[in-house]
Structures are given as C-alpha cells and as structure tokens.
C-alpha cells in the first residue's frame, strides 16, 4: 500500500495534466473568476480606506473646553483635569494655556491678533478626547455643566454627519462585497459545472474502474483551486499596481489629511493575498459542488 502523500502527488499531477489538456475550460473558468475578482478588489481597496477615514475622523473628535476667567491657578487646572478624566467616555484631556490658545487663534484668524501676545484675553482651556463619535454630544453637555467651565464645543454636526455617511458607505460596500462573493461562487461553480458536463462520462468511467467519489473529486478540487488562483493573478496585479499608481498620483490622500490613504505596502499586498486565497477557495468550492452533481448521476 502507498502513502497519503503519494496519492496527493498523483492527484496534483493529474490536476495539472487536466488543466493543460483542457486549456479552453481553464481559461474560461479562470476569466469568470477574474471578472468578479477585479470588482472584488476594487471594493476591498475602497472598504479598507473608508474604514481608515472613519477612524481618522473619529480620532479628530475633540472637545474644546474653555475655562472661566477666574480659573488661573495650577491647582485649579489640576482639579479640572481630574474632573474631566473622571467623566465617562473621556480618554484624554490636554491642557492648553491661554497663551497657547492665543497662538491657535492667531493661526486661525490671522496675524492681526498678534498684538495681544504677552497679554492673552482668552481663557485657559482643555482639549478633551472621547472614545467614540457617538458619545461626543453627551460628554460635551456634561462638561458645560461643570463649575468653572465657560464653554465647551466640538466640530459640530458636520463632523458627525461625515462619520454617518462614511459608515453608510462602509456598510453598503460590505453588503456589496458579500453579494459579489456569492456571485463569484455561483459563476465559478456554473462555469466548472458546464466544463465538467463534458466530462461526466469520465467521472462515470472512473467509478467503473473502482475509483471512490473522494478519489475522483480530489483532482477536480485541486484543479478548481488552481483555476481560482490563475483567475486571481490579474486582479491581484491590477489591484496592487493600480492602487500604487492611484496612491502616488493623489499624493497619498484625498483632499485633506483626514482622508489619508492606506499605503500600498502592506495594504495593496494584503488585498492581493486576500484575492488569491479567495480565488482558491471559490475554485475549490465551485468544483466540489459541480463534481458532486455528476457523481450522483450514475451508479
């Protein structure tokens, strides 16, 4: 008797022989994979970056807390700092002195306000970071009610609307990818089914000479796997180089640094790996499904 690996070797050999002897079927099945995987690649690239954007924007969720003019002592700052940190959902509270506040103000409004340097009319302040955009509004309200706080504001509705939109796009993209996956499996299974249809006689003959269903399926599944991998090659190259090109032309971001793109390495490579694995899996599933159908046809 012979070992498992010898048998596996035979299966791989016969899968390869079959791939080359059925070139037309290999090409047609592979291209079915290719088309869907290109779409899949586009959505992987998009979804990955959208996740990143949302993360970026959420990390920009900071509450600007301006203190009353009577809050001037270091002990008062320390006490305010611990009060802020004690609030739920607050992750960080950074002190910003009235002079630093003035610099920010000058940066925003212009050099005309530079004459106030040395005697800032602004109050001392804190920048409070919350754990997620969803909690920013309630936390802001709570801070406003603290004694010694003059005002508390955050980016406002525009920021949270942006997050909502990105979330919707992300979820929509995910649903689309799920649909695409289903489509890919269906397409490949069908293409392989059509191509195996021409070989249902072969499957019957294999049973005639004593090959078990399992034994018959093996090379077809390996064949399917390679078809899937072949089909993933073009989308893989396209995804990587296309993304790299896009990344470079856009200078690594869309409009602002909040929309910083993921770098081609490792993201492009990761997408590539996912595509190849996905192609292989879909190929195996598709051909297994297809062969099962024909195995049942004859005794």
């Amino acid at each position: 008797m012979i070992s498992f690996f010898t048998v596996l070797g035979r299966h791989i050999k016969s899968a390869f022989l079959s791939l080359f002897r059925h070139v037309a079927m290999t090409i047609s099945s592979s291209s079915a994979v290719t088309v869907t995987l290109i779409l899949f690649a586009a959505f992987l690239l998009l979804a990955g970056n959208i996740s990143k954007f949302t993360g970026n924007i959420e990390s920009d969720f900071r509450i600007h807390v301006v203190l009353n003019q009577d809050q001037m002592q270091q002990e008062q700052f320390d006490s305010m700092h611990s009060q802020l940190l004690a609030l739920e959902h607050v992750e960080k509270a950074e002190f910003s002195s009235k002079d630093q506040e003035l610099e920010l103000y000058i940066e925003e409004k212009g050099e005309a306000f530079a004459l106030y340097r040395g005697d800032s009319p602004l109050g001392n302040a804190f920048f409070v970071t919350v754990d997620s955009g969803d909690n920013i509004e309630t936390v802001t309200q709570q801070i406003k009610n603290l004694p010694g706080v003059s005002n508390a504001t955050y980016g406002g509705d525009s920021v949270s609307q942006m997050v909502d939109i990105l979330n919707t796009v992300r979820i929509g993209g995910l649903a689309f990818v799920a649909l695409l996956t289903f489509l890919a499996v269906f397409l490949i299974s069908n293409t392989i089914k059509i191509s195996i249809y021409a070989r249902n006689q072969e499957i019957a003959i294999m049973r005639n000479v004593g090959a078990t269903n399992h034994y018959i399926k093996m090379p077809f599944m390996i064949e399917g796997m390679f078809i899937g991998i072949f089909g993933a090659l073009l989308p893989c190259l396209l995804a990587y180089f296309g993304y790299e090109y896009l990344y470079n032309t856009m200078g690594g971001q869309i409009f602002t640094s909040a929309f910083r793109l993921l770098t081609p390495i490792p993201f492009g490579v990761e997408v590539c790996v996912v595509l190849v694995l996905f192609g292989a899996l879909v190929g195996i599933l598709g051909s297994s499904h297809a062969v099962n159908k024909y195995l049942k046809w004859v005794r």
Partner: peptide
C-alpha cells in the same frame, strides 16, 4: 494504470 492506482498499488 489508472485502474491500478485507484486500488492503491505503488508506482
């Protein structure tokens, strides 16, 4: 050879 392979004979 195929008919002999499936019954697990060696090469």
């Amino acid at each position: 050879a195929f008919a002999l392979e499936v019954i697990g004979l060696d090469k």
